[in-house]
Amino acid sequence: MIISGSVVKYGDNIDTDVIVPGKYLGITDYEELGRHALEGIDPDFSSKIKQTSILVVGENFGCGSSREEAPVALKYAGVKCIIAKSFARIFYRNAINIGLPIVVCSEASEKLNDGDMVTINLAEGVIINTSRNEVYRTKALPGFILEILKDGGLVAYLRRRLT
């Protein structure tokens, strides 16, 4: 899987209450959820990400609650891939399960800046910063996780296998 776009960048320890505040939980219109994504730290996020599509963050992204609305809101806001130094574990699973690609790469998280153009190869674990001609390498995702992402999420993956 290859994903391209430009970067919008935020810091460390961004929690799920900031990604989707509790008052929006229960909304089943995902486009509506997307409009509130990250509004806790940047009220303009949902309009910015539509132009950029690659979210770059620091460590422990998505800490806090198990709300799957967090990656769902980001996905429907227009995020195509998240690059982080590290993810909180529930968020990491949730993102894969709803078909939102995520990459753990400290070097890319540090070096990428707002507006940089990147191309990400998930199967090979390679991130190319075309704005600065830099290449960052990380571990490729395990095969079954790539399969889940290719199917668009865990539901579709299981439907294909169980039914």
Binding site: S66, R67, E68, I90, R93, N94, N97, I98, G153, L154, V155, L158
Partner: peptide, 10 residues
């Protein structure tokens, strides 16, 4: 341990 809704559905 906690998981999200889709993991729990699985």
């Amino acid at each position: 341990t906690g998981m999200g809704a889709t993991d729990v559905a699985a």
